[in-house]
Amino acid sequence: MTLAEQLPDAAVATRATVRDWREAVQLAGRGLVDQGATTERYTDEMLQALDDHGPYIVIAPGFALAHSRPSEAVLRAGLSWVSLAEPVEFGSEANDPVSLVIGLAAPDHQSHLEVMAELAGVLADDAVLAELMSADSAADVRSILNRVAHGDAASTPEDSGM
């Protein structure tokens, strides 16, 4: 399954307004629950992970990958997408403030690897990422992702001459 196929309308909130990082993660959790990937409990687990380990999920400038571990709260693998109208601070020294939160649920350690590889490619491309962050509908997000998946992205790390 491609990244775009993993993002039904119920999984996507664009240009959302939130008060703080907690609300942003709750919205990412909502997208997972609404598409039937997780129960509400998974959202609490994602928040707990942040309380326990700090904002380590903010892994790139402006980007957080909200997730917890495989558990009974995960019904199937799923992704959700929350882009923010105004970025919020997560407390990450290197990568605050955050404009895009992707929620991830996985029932095991393998089933989501293909989609993670696609995600890694998307996140590595600053131009695509900027475009995705300003997309204002689920259909827009999917069409950008589909275009990138078909190889029309500006550049990839592999061909940047390293």
Partner: peptide, 18 residues
């Protein structure tokens, strides 16, 4: 290494392999 072993560490592993 990441907190849960399914998300950020998987991205990091893929990029470290690259």
């Amino acid at each position: 290494v990441c907190g849960m072993g399914i998300g950020t560490s998987v991205l990091l592993k893929m990029n470290a392999e690259k």
